[in-house]
Amino acid sequence: MNPPPGTDMFVHDSTGIDRVGPGEVRLLLELASYAYHARDRAAPLFTLEATSLSAHQRQLVAILGANASGKSTLLRLMAGALAPLSGRVQLDGFEVSKLDPRTRAQRIALVQQESLLLFPVRVWEYVMQGRHPYGRGLRFETEEDAKVVESALAQVGALHLKPRWMHEISGGEKQRVVLARALAQQPLLLLLDEPTLHLDIGAQVDLLRQLRWLAEANRYTVVVVTHELNLAAEFADHVVLMHRGKSLRVGSPAEVYDRDLLEQVFGAALEVETGADGTPRVRVRGRLPSQA
C-alpha cells in the first residue's frame, strides 16, 4: 500500500493551518476531567478524573481499558464534543471545545461505528460530506473538493468503489470509506472509536498499519480506542490505560504494560513478555483449572 504520488494535500503545511512545528506538542490534555449527570445537581453518573497526556504529529496514541472505563468520554473530550469540567484540552494551542463546529471539523475528524444510512447515497457523495466544513452556506463542490475525495479514497485503497452505492458494499469496504471521509476533512487530529471491533485479525493488522502509515504520510496525530492490547503495543507510540474513569498510566507501551496493572484493569490472569525490539506482548497466564 504505497502512497500515490503527490498526496501531500493532506499535510497541512501546505495550507498554513499548522501552527506548531514538528517537534512541538500538538495534542495536549492537562488534568482534563468530565462528569455525566442525569439531572442538574444530582450526583454524577460517571466521572472521568483528571487526565493528562500529550502527543506530537506523526504519533499514534492508543486508549485502552475495560468497558465503561471512560475511553469514549476521553475521545469525545479530545474531539471537542464535550467541554472539560476542569483542566484543558488543546490542539495546537487552541482549546478544542471552544472552537466553532466548522473550524473544529477542519482540524479534527472523528470516525465512529455504524453510520446511519437512511436514504441511498453513493460512495463518492458520502466521502464528499467530509468537505462540508470547507464550504460556506450553500455551495457546490469544487474541482478541488473532487480531487481531495479521490485522493482520500486512493489512500485507503477504495478508489474503485467510487461510483458504488453505500448500502451495496461490504462491511470492510464501508469502514474504509468512512475513514476516507475523515481524511477528506484534511484534519490534524484523527480520532477513531473502536475501529477494530468487528474485524478479524488480518483486517485489524491492516487497519492499524494503514493508520500508522497515514500518521506518517499526512502528519496526523492519530488516537485510537481499542481493546487489542498487542496491536496497540505494536503500533502505538503512546498508550493510555483507563480504569473506571481514571487514567492509571500514560506512556509508551513498554512503560504501561505492567502485569499487575493489566490484571487490575482487565481482571484476568495475564502475562507480559517483552520481545526483542522492546515491544511488550500480552499472554493469558496459566491454564484452565481442569488442565492444571
Binding site: 460556506r136 452556506g137 457546490f140 469544487t142
Partner: peptide
C-alpha cells in the same frame, strides 16, 4: 469559494 448556488435558488 463563491457561493454560486446562491444565484440559482432565487
Amino acid at each position: 469559494m463563491p457561493s454560486v448556488l446562491g444565484l440559482f435558488f432565487p
